[in-house]
Computed example of a mutant assay.
Amino acid sequence: METKTLISSYDEINDTFVAKVDGEYGISADYDISDGIFLGIDKNNVPNSVYVNNASEVFKIPKEILENSNVVIYIDCNMVCLNFHMFIEGLKICSIRCRNDFGIPEISFEIDSNH
């Protein structure tokens, strides 16, 4: 499993969570992988960012938890399924399994704010 460095931020006023892979720029598409969780992909169809509006409602957690910068995201994908898991301070915030209708290649990596 490949590990990448994550940069994340949370805007409490607008209740918006944003995370991106450090050093990667440019998004060629955003996909709604689950009710309000958007996964950005680069020109090679590899995920490089996450955006969630109304994050405390989408994740069903207090805003104070989202303010924590200790975030880890795991993404596993094959030609059929995409698995997305997000943790804050070791607490599982989100676990999604959906069809890979996005053209994302077979990948397995961890994006960690502490890497």
Rank of each mutant, 00 (worst) to 15 (best):
P105Y: 08
N83R: 14
I107A: 09
D101Y: 01
N70D: 15
L91S: 13
N68F: 02
V71C: 10
A55H: 03
P62E: 13
M86E: 09
G26S: 09
I65F: 02
K92F: 00
I13P: 00
E57L: 11
S9T: 13
F84W: 09
E12F: 09
N45D: 01
C81W: 14
A19Q: 05
I41G: 01
L91M: 14
E2D: 15
K20Y: 12
M79N: 13
F84A: 08
E106T: 15
Y31P: 02
D112W: 02
D42T: 04
V50S: 03
K43S: 15
I7D: 11
D42G: 08
Y10V: 01
M86I: 10
L66S: 06
F59W: 06
K63S: 07
E24W: 12
F109R: 00
R99L: 09
V21Q: 13
T3M: 09
N114I: 08
V72H: 03
K20F: 10
D42L: 02
A29Y: 12
I13K: 06
N53K: 12
C81A: 13
E2G: 07
D42E: 03
F102W: 08
C94Q: 14
H85D: 15
A55T: 06
N53S: 12
D112H: 02
V18Y: 07
I93W: 10
N54Y: 15
D76L: 12
G36Q: 02
G40L: 04
V52A: 03
K20W: 05
E106D: 11
G26K: 07
N70L: 09
D112Q: 05
M1Q: 11
D22L: 10
M86H: 04
D22G: 00
I65A: 04
D42Y: 01
F17L: 13
V58A: 04
D76K: 14
D76S: 13
T16M: 07
L91N: 13
Y10H: 01
I13R: 01
I13D: 07
S34W: 11
Y25C: 01
S34V: 00
K4T: 03
D30F: 15
K63V: 02
I27C: 12
Y51F: 10
D30R: 12
K60P: 00
K92V: 10
I7W: 11
P62Q: 05
T5M: 14
I27S: 10
Y10L: 00
P62G: 08
Y31H: 15
I41A: 05
M1R: 11
V58N: 03
C81M: 14
Y25R: 02
G103R: 06
K60Q: 14
D30V: 07
N68R: 15
C81L: 13
G103V: 03
I111S: 13
F59C: 05
F38C: 10
D101T: 06
Y74M: 05
V18D: 08
I13V: 11
N70V: 01
I61W: 00
I93H: 08
I75D: 04
